[in-house]
C-alpha cells in the first residue's frame, strides 16, 4: 500500500532523464551534495546560536530577542537551500533514498522540528521581553531549544547515515525493519 505507492513514485522519478543525468554526473552530483553539507554552516549554524542563546550557552549578554530576530532570516535562507539541494539529492537517487530507513526518520523528525519551531516562535512573542537580558530564557523556551538542538543533531546523523548500506533492501530479510524502510517483497529495482 503506502510502501508500494512510494516505490512506484520513486521508479517513475528514476525513469526521468534529469534524474539519470544528475546521478551520473560526477561533478554535478557532488557539488549538489557539497552545497547540502556547506549550507549546514548557515542553516544549523544560525539555529544553534539561537538555541544555545536560549540556554545561556552562547552570546549570553546579547539580548535573546535580538539574536532570535536577527538570525532568523539567514537561517531561513539556509534552510531553503537545504531543502532545494536535499530534494535534488533525493531526485538523483530516488529508489534507494525512498527506501532508506534513515531518510524516513530524518523526514518525520524534520516535520516534528518544524512544529516545534512554530510553537517556539509563538511562545517567544508571548513571553514578552522582561527576561531579554537574562542569560537563560524562561523554561518553556529552554525546553523548545533543547528539543531543537537534540532533534537537529539526530537529523544530521540520519543524513550522514543515508550513505551507508547497512539496511539496504538488497541485504535485508522481510520483517519489521524492512517494512519500515519501505522494502517491497520481490522488488527488482534498487
Amino acid at each position: 500500500m503506502f510502501n508500494q505507492l512510494i516505490h512506484n513514485i520513486a521508479i517513475w522519478l528514476d525513469d526521468t532523464r534529469w534524474s539519470t543525468m544528475l546521478h551520473e554526473s560526477y561533478y554535478m552530483y557532488n557539488w549538489v551534495e557539497s552545497t547540502h553539507v556547506l549550507t549546514l554552516m548557515v542553516s544549523l549554524g544560525m539555529l544553534f546560536l539561537i538555541d544555545l542563546r536560549m540556554l545561556g550557552l552562547a552570546l549570553p549578554d546579547v539580548p535573546a530577542s535580538t539574536i532570535a530576530r536577527r538570525l532568523n532570516l539567514p537561517m531561513l535562507v539556509g534552510f531553503t537551500v537545504m531543502v532545494v539541494t536535499g530534494l535534488l539529492l533525493f531526485y538523483a537517487v530516488p529508489v534507494r533514498s525512498s527506501q532508506s530507513i534513515w531518510m524516513r526518520i530524518k523526514l518525520v523528525l524534520m516535520l516534528g522540528l518544524l512544529i516545534n519551531a512554530v510553537l517556539f516562535h509563538r511562545r517567544m512573542s508571548e513571553a514578552g521581553s522582561g527576561w531579554d537580558a537574562q542569560p537563560r530564557a524562561p523554561r518553556n523556551l529552554r525546553l523548545g531549544a533543547m528539543f531543537s538542538l537534540a532533534g537537529w543533531s539526530v537529523v544530521v546523523t540520519c543524513g550522514r547515515f543515508i550513505a551507508y548500506d547497512w539496511f539496504d533492501c538488497q541485504y535485508m530479510d522481510p520483517g519489521l525493519m524492512s517494512s519500515l524502510a519501505g522494502c517491497i517483497e520481490g522488488q527488482t529495482r534498487f
Binding site: M41, V42, G45, M46, R70, P74, V156, T157
Partner: peptide, 30 residues
Amino acid sequence: QSVHLLGLALLGGAVLAAEGRLLNVILTDT
C-alpha cells in the same frame, strides 16, 4: 563523522555571525 558535521555547523554559525557583523549585514544593533 556526524559529530564532525555538527562541529562544522557550529563553526559556521560563529564565523557567519561575527563576520556578518563586521560586514554590517547582521546584528547591526549590537
